[in-house]
């Protein structure tokens, strides 16, 4: 639960979170971090970035080193526990690793070993929440100034936000709806499609680009056929895989996709009246600006 207090001169409740941006959000996925912070501020949510945070280890740690894959996120969990606020996490990979660590730390023996590694006594009394859940909270008013009318959005969740349910405890593993409801509140039209929690190929783009191309093309071609104008995502890996390789997909599969892939926070930002420049919409490899102009949304 977020700390709720009254905000002088403002009727909206004040919500305060610790914030763990994650490495990608300060580099290739900068636009996710920037738009998440802008939108949060606008909605009266305060994000306090953890100081001197470190990497969660991502899939590299849990693929190769069991204890490291728990100890790295445990360090962040301890920081959040000490800050005494729930932890807001934009990146689906960081979110997943933090939640997995929390889940494993419920076992006393595991918790003792990881506490020994990080030289701090760990508890599991810390709430970790995905940015999507925080910003899509239906008790939070969204002052839409520019409804995303006529914009057909394919909401794509990927794997890590919703699986496995007993670990992440968020929405539904096969047919989540959080992002769809959010898009409706922004005035957009979420489309129905069948692969919104299917995998995009995750982190194997460097070693096995062929796998990423096959899996991501499967998603994008279905989205295209379903008539969407763009894709909304909540994960920097999903974003990279769907946004960066559309030219490669055209070369390999012969279909011109030209489907803009946006972070859901960027779409929120547009509806809240921020400019494309503020939302860093110019940073995507598949340029979303022509489509947004055509729809008269910018």
């Amino acid at each position: 639960m977020a700390k709720v207090g009254s905000n002088t001169g403002n009727q909206t409740a004040e919500r305060v979170y610790s914030y763990y941006p994650g490495c990608s959000q300060l580099a290739t996925a900068e636009e996710y971090d920037v738009s998440a912070r802008l939108v949060s501020r606008k909605l009266g949510i305060e994000l306090r970035e953890l100081e001197d945070w470190i990497c969660c280890g991502a899939s590299a740690a849990h693929s190769t080193d069991h204890w490291l894959s728990l100890a790295l996120p445990a360090h962040t969990l301890k920081q959040a526990e000490e800050a005494g606020l729930p932890l807001a996490v934009p990146c689906a990979m960081c979110f997943s690793r933090l939640k997995f660590a929390l889940h494993e730390l419920e076992n006393k023996e595991t918790r003792d070993i990881v506490s020994h590694i990080i030289e701090k006594e760990l508890s599991t009394a810390v709430a970790v929440e995905p940015m999507l859940k925080i910003l899509a909270d239906e008790s939070l008013p969204i002052p839409v100034v520019k409804p995303l009318s006529g914009l057909k959005v394919a909401c794509y969740y990927g794997c890590l936000l919703v699986r496995p349910p007993e670990v992440v405890k968020f929405d539904n593993a096969e047919n989540p709806q959080t992002m769809e409801r959010l898009m409706q509140r922004l005035g957009a039209e979420p489309i129905n499609w069948g692969l919104k929690t299917a995998c995009c190929g995750a982190g194997v783009a460097f070693p096995r680009l062929d796998v990423v191309l096959k899996l991501s093309y499967r998603l994008l071609s279905l989205i295209k056929a379903s008539g969407a104008d763009c894709v909304a995502v909540a994960c920097p890996m999903c974003h990279a895989n769907l946004d960066m390789y559309q030219k490669d997909m055209k070369a390999k599969f012969g279909e011109k996709l030209d489907l803009p892939v946006l972070y859901f926070t960027q779409l929120m930002g547009l509806a809240l009246g921020f400019s494309p420049k503020e939302l860093l919409l110019n940073k995507h490899i598949t340029n979303p600006l022509p489509m947004l102009r055509k729809k008269e949304l910018i």
């Binding site: 001197d52 490291l68 790295l72 070993i113 990080i118 110019n282 995507h284």
Partner: peptide, 29 residues
Amino acid sequence: AKKKLRLIPQRTKGVSDARRIAARVKKLE
């Protein structure tokens, strides 16, 4: 062209924590 790459590594004082954790995991293992 899209300024996607961050050429300078991020700086964090947490680097000493990360190194210590990695070393202690290695020792434990």
